[in-house]
Computed example of a mutant assay.
Amino acid sequence: MQHFLWGKVVLVLVAVVAVLQVVHLILLSRLEARHHHHDDQSDQLASAGNEGPISVAVFAEDHDLSEALWTIVGLRLCYSAIRHNVSFQLVSPLPAGGRPPLSVPQDPAHPCQLPTPSRSEQQRNYAGSRRFPNNLLRNVARRGAATEFVLVVDIDMLPSVNLRQDFYDFAVKNRLFTESHREDKTVYVVPAFEVRETVPVPRHKAELLQLADQGHLRPFYIELCWKCQVHTDYEAWQKEPPSSGVAPLFEVLWKDPWEPFYIARNSVPFYDERFKQYGFNRISQVCELHVAGYKFSVLNNGFLVHHGLKTATSFHVNKDMDQERNRMLFRQFKTELRDKYPESSRRCY
């Protein structure tokens, strides 16, 4: 009996040490990313293209927590660019009955052999046991970012090559980092597209336009909610010939239910964390930007791409229920904005 108890104590101590090591690595990743950013921000931004500070919020339920922790450790150990540029923020629900013990990988000596998710796991989307806190994750990631400007995107979106460097050059040229521009209320819209999985993701606007002409690429969400993106005015954007760098092409007045992706100062209003699962989570935040007096300026060359076409069959079975629940919350949210911005004449409709 005594040997059994000592065995359990040893196992618990091993688990505690493993958890502390993982937590240490995650905290170290945040410190290194911030240090790497602040040490020589100008040189880094001027030379790194799209390889720069990234803040990643990871959501892991109880049964996924060990895998998430060890995957983060593996990524940091095996890829120097991730170790230097990426900070990880781990979000996990607080269990009612206590946290189950974390497991150690069967072969921790080879952390670079990361598991590849199965096709079914990739398509789970919001079909977990808990309501997915997407807006909470967006806020956590933003709070973990050390940069003045941020581009908030979902993990399955890829930016065009040199988008970060091109925007930095534009910001420097237009003195956006100076104190006199800190209160400027402009967000810079990055048009989003979706491309067939059978073709490579376009790197530049010329490649994107060619894929669009061939029928392999289309505006993001055009099949599911064309009004959610149509106000970006893709037709006008695609008529503009590719050029070097990025610059504002035209401004767009927000209209319900437009939910563009954009680059903005990290001081813009945060996302409302009451919105979970599917529906109205990004629209609500962009709606608040509109009421708060922000203007939307579409960039001429930069873009985002989702690899794979968005179709109705790619969502979880309770999508419509989630959307209806959040629709009611959105109505309440719009009413609350009137009290939050009493001097604004703008409304979300």
Rank of each mutant, 00 (worst) to 15 (best):
H3D: 09
H3R: 10
L11A: 11
L27Y: 10
S29P: 06
E32H: 08
A33N: 12
H35E: 12
H36D: 11
A46T: 10
S47L: 07
S47Y: 08
F59W: 15
A60M: 10
R76I: 15
R76D: 10
C78I: 13
S80D: 11
A81Q: 12
F88C: 09
V91A: 01
V91R: 04
P93M: 02
G97N: 15
R99W: 11
P101I: 12
P117G: 06
R124S: 05
A127Q: 11
R130N: 12
I155G: 01
L163I: 06
N174Q: 14
T178I: 01
E194T: 07
E194G: 04
T198S: 15
V199F: 09
H204I: 08
L211Y: 06
D213N: 05
G215I: 03
L217V: 12
P219S: 01
Y221D: 08
K227I: 02
E235L: 14
P241L: 03
G245N: 05
L253Y: 03
E259R: 07
P260E: 13
I263H: 09
K276M: 13
S284Q: 15
E288W: 01
F296E: 08
V298G: 05
V317N: 04
L329A: 15
Q332A: 10
T335M: 10
L337C: 06
R346G: 03
C348Y: 04
Y349S: 12
